[in-house]
């Protein structure tokens, strides 16, 4: 930090974000951690820390429903991230290679959905997907199907919702790294005998891997604990992490189990984040 800054201001500039993190991240995390060692009770708050123990954590390990929720959440998020990468890469590439005067508009279009409430957009999907929805209605009117297709309340709808919601998080970092990519690298590869598929595999993709990794993490982390999408599109049987936490918290009023589950996902996701930072630092 420059000595030109007065010491008071310097303290403020460092202190404010630290205070923010302390109040809104460290403190709630510590509270959740503490609650996870408590026991559910009927009072208010609905837990007691009189006899701290590992009961909630033991429950997490012993009841397969939690491991199942965790695994299917990570699987869902991983699958959705992979699909978003396959869709998002060509999108980002096309935007990065579009004439400069188009790029701004195309990026705004990518971000446009954020201007509408998340909840409203997912609700709109139910209007499209439900048995009496627009898609089934149109297909039936055209005589392509006899009975409505089951488009909702299944894993397909959750995947669709996750990809739809988080695609911009994949496209934007990919765009940033593709836009930075010197076009003469691809020309050099062609000049050295590489055909288009080889150019992509040996030059474009490796050179933009950091952008792909950033996009994948930005999407995978929130998608793995996503609550609204499985709740609204996944049907009653979807056993996913977000819903499991919700259920423990509100339905079962088992705050220690909910807290333990929330902490477990943070710790699990810290792994890939740290790995990513290591990779970034090495470059």
């Amino acid at each position: 930090m420059s000595p030109l800054w007065p010491p008071g201001l310097r303290f403020l500039l460092i202190g404010l974000p630290l205070a923010w993190l302390a109040v809104f991240f460290a403190l709630p995390f510590a509270m959740a951690l503490a609650i996870s060692f408590g026991a559910p009770s009927d009072g208010a708050p609905p837990f007691s820390l009189d006899a701290p123990g590992l009961a909630a954590w033991r429950l997490l390990v012993e009841d397969p429903i939690y491991a199942d929720a965790l695994l299917s959440s990570l699987g869902m998020a991983g699958m959705a991230t992979a699909i978003a990468a396959v869709i998002g890469y060509p999108m980002a590439y096309a935007i990065a290679r579009a004439p400069a005067r188009w790029r701004g508009l195309l990026l705004v279009l990518v971000m446009l959905p954020f201007w509408t409430s998340f909840l409203v957009r997912i609700y709109a999907w139910t209007a499209l997907l439900r048995p009496t929805g627009l898609i089934n209605g149109a297909l039936q009117a055209l005589g392509l199907i006899e009975a409505p297709l089951q488009l909702m309340d299944n894993a397909f709808a959750v995947q669709l919702g996750l990809v739809y919601v988080y695609l911009p998080f994949m496209v934007l970092p990919l765009y940033a790294s593709l836009e930075k990519l010197d076009p003469s690298l691809e020309e050099a590869a062609a000049d050295l005998g590489a055909r288009p598929a080889a150019i992509f595999a040996t030059v474009t993709l490796p050179a933009t891997l950091p952008g792909l990794a950033a996009g994948a993490l930005l999407m995978f982390i929130p998608a793995s604990a996503e609550f609204i999408v499985p709740e609204m599109l996944g049907g009653p049987d979807a056993n996913l992490l977000g819903r499991a936490i919700w259920n423990e918290f509100f339905a079962n009023r088992d705050w220690p189990a909910a807290a333990a589950l929330a902490i477990a996902i943070v710790v699990l996701l810290a792994g890939p984040i740290l790995l990513f930072q290591r990779l970034e630092a090495r470059r």
Binding site: D182, S184, A188, D191, G193, A207, L209
Partner: peptide, 18 residues
């Protein structure tokens, strides 16, 4: 370009960074 008996030294050199 990949079918020409020609190679190029680019102004930016265009070395593959990875």
């Amino acid at each position: 370009p990949w079918d020409r008996p020609v190679n190029t030294v680019f102004q930016s050199y265009a070395l593959f960074p990875h």
